[in-house]
Each structure stands twice: as structure tokens, then as C-alpha cells.
Write a protein that binds this DNA or RNA. Sequence first.
DNA 1: GTGTAGTCTAAGAATTCGCTAAGAATTTCC
DNA 2: GGAAATTCTTAGCGAATTCTTAGACTACAC
Lengths: 223, 223
Amino acid sequence: MPNSELPRLLLIEDDAVLGPLIAELLAGDYYVQLAADGQKGLHLALTGTWDVLVIDRGLPVMDGLALVRALRSNGVGTPALILTALGSTAEKIDGLDAGANDYMSKPFDAGELKARLRAITRNFGSTPALLEIGTWVLDPVSRKLRSQYGNHVDLTAKESELLALLAGNPSRVFTRPELVEALFHPGDSPGVIDTYVHYLRRKVDKALIRTVHGLGYQIGDDS
Amino acid sequence: MPNSELPRLLLIEDDAVLGPLIAELLAGDYYVQLAADGQKGLHLALTGTWDVLVIDRGLPVMDGLALVRALRSNGVGTPALILTALGSTAEKIDGLDAGANDYMSKPFDAGELKARLRAITRNFGSTPALLEIGTWVLDPVSRKLRSQYGNHVDLTAKESELLALLAGNPSRVFTRPELVEALFHPGDSPGVIDTYVHYLRRKVDKALIRTVHGLGYQIGDDS
DNA sequence: GTGTAGTCTAAGAATTCGCTAAGAATTTCC
DNA sequence: GGAAATTCTTAGCGAATTCTTAGACTACAC
């Protein structure tokens, strides 16, 4: 009875075809979250809890290498594998120097990708990664929010992601554009945030999320 | 195909000739599941319910010894026998050190293999391993689901396997591809899972299995 | 107080996802 | 061999989720 939760994998890949394809490939072995560009990916990688990262090298806006460097310099040691169209040894060395744990050229074999992922995650036990939010505890995988008193609330995917991001950085104020960038599609109206904050407050507790007038939203810091 | 009165044996052997051959040999005495590589084998060993494991040492991707170590470090104590082309004492010791219960060199005698399997499973008995699911108790052998109040529901083989897998890992969320891989044939439509979940809910209780929208299914610890 | 920018909320359109029925294919049992 | 049970596929419908919009409401500056 190994209670091995599905490892959480963040896939940062802008290609509209390749992204979902890889996500589907790994869906059986990992809980896969797909980020469509580097900035969104960076936010998720910084704020979420991940067991392994798969990052496309040729990302628009912020390329894969810069992303890995940014993560490492922020103290994020999550194992990372870089995907690339380029396959020279020099490229490979660059990738590993940037702080990646492994490097694979496209096109790649599905089995090899899984094997390499297993290799770089071997020594990282998957953490249950429960988030404490006041008197509540969020399980981002099953998307259940449990209170100390036995009752629980089921959240939707977006509700859970938003809450996890806010709760993962207590007392930090997130602006609406920032949240849209991290969790929604580019071009989505900033009003989505208001809507989901509203959903959460209605489902859980009015005081769950604090509004910072003119700035954004915040969790924690009840002063 | 599966006669679930028989002990459940997981055979992990990549050789396209030897694998089916051994499976055939043991088919009369065990319900044999053949996994063609270490990765698949590890997955099955972790998620399924097995009475004994037979593992080839020279597996691609993840070799037999590493596989056994991975299992043991995950708390899986299912008796395991290692098959190998190498027969030196040193090799044998390595295998046992890794956590295997026995070790056999190829070519081997069918009778001896069966005898050794009987030996290492002797002390484990055929664990009925009743599974508690809410107010119900599942006996995977007789495939009967009994309630506290004397009534019972007869399940089919697949229904029972699915329920046992979910119930054996309470609160873990299984994706459809994951369940298909563990319980069905590769290439089967993910929709089978929906169908069997539907069967179980209709036979037993609507609330037996929880849907995690967009992710998969879960047997929970809601109270 | 009053105006303005910012926030909350409801309602609904669009989309995705899951449930279910029906039946074909396969296996089991007599 | 035939009937019954089981396994698995497909497709339509309904439900859940996502996101937009617009008007009511609120906080803050002056």
C-alpha cells in the first residue's frame, strides 16, 4: 500500500501542439500543469510546489535558460529538465551550467523522457504539499479545503490555483495583472480575478482574502 | 482471463520470448500479469495488489535491483524473486541486499521456480486483505462488498479491481490514463473508467467515488 | 459631502467535462 | 452450441467550469 501521491510536474512549453502532447504523455505518471510562456512558468515555479520541472529552451519573452537561472538564484532547487531543438554538446553544457539537471533534444522518445525524469527526481520524496491558510488546510491535488472542525469545501481548479498562489506567499500583495499572468491566459480581463476572489469568499469565508484597495489581493497579515 | 482465486503474481521481464514463456508456465498456479519493462513494472507493483513478484535482473531503463530497492524504500514488502543470467555468489548477495527474497539463475527448472515461489509466499499466506471503504468492506478475493448491516453487493472482476485500487490508496487522486494503465489494456479508451465508476456508483452508492473534475477519481476521507 | 476610481456581485454565454444509455464484442457458464 | 454475464466503445445530453460584462456599491481624495 504505497501511498505515493502523483508527483507534481510543471511543464513550461509555448508550442501549442507540443505542449498538450507532452502533457498528455506524462499525465499517467505525473500531475501535469502546463504553462504557456516563461513568465507564467516562472511565477508558477516560484509560488507553487513542484516535484520536477520540464522547460522548453526556446521560450518567447523569457527563454528557458534564463528561467532556470532565475529560479536557482531565488533558491528554488526543484529538479529541472530542459527540452531543446538544438542538440550540440555546447548547448547541453550551457543548459547544465544554468542549473538544469538534465537536457534532452527534440525529437525525443517518450520512454527516455520518463526515464530521465525519474532519474532526476529519484532522491526527492514527493511532499504532500498541504497549504495552511488560517484555520484551513488546502490540498491542491484533490482541491479540497478542510477546516479544523471537520467540514470541507470542494474547490474548482482555478479557485484552488488562485488560493494556493496567494497562500503560498502570505502577506504578499498580488496585483490583478500579476495574477492573470500567472494563472490565466494572456489577454484575459483582469476582472476574472475579482470573480474568483468572490467565488472563494462565498464558498469559504468572507475574510479569507483581503483586498488592498488600489493594489490587489493578499492572504495572511490580518492587521 | 483473470481467475482471482489464484495468487496474484507480477512478472517483470522484458525478453519477448522468455516473458510469455514464464507467464505460461505459471499461469496454472498464479494469476500472472506481465510487465515488459521496469518502469511499467514499478508502477504496477506500487499501485496494484500482488502476492509475489518475479523480476528479471537485466531490465532496460530501470534494472531489477534498482526496482526492488525502489519498492522496499516505498514500504512495499511483497515477496520478490529475482531472475538472472548471472549466477555468481556476489551477484546473488547483491540481489538479496537490495531486498529481494530469493534469486534464481537462468536457465532454470520450472518445478524449482514454483517451489521457490511457494517458499517465499508461505509466510505471507494469501492475504485476504479486506479493504474498508466508508461503511463498506471489500473482499477482493470473493469480490463481495459487504455493508455493516449484513447486505452485500457482488462485483465483477473489473469493478472489484478498480474499487480495490482506489480504496487501497485513500485520498489519492487517480487520473484516467493511470487507471487504464494499471487495470486495463494499453490503448483502451479512458472512457472505460467512467463506465466502471458508473457501474460501481449504481450498484453501491452514488457517493462511493468522488470525481475530481478535470483530473480523475478518488476515494475519500470525507466525513 | 461629492466625485471618481476601484471593487463587488449577479447573470449569462461559451466551453469543457462527466454521466449515462445503448449496443457490439468478448468471455463464461451450462 | 447457445444463453448469460462481462467487458469495452461510442455518442448525446446535461452539468460543471471558465470567463465576460454591466450595474450596484464602496473607499478614498479633496
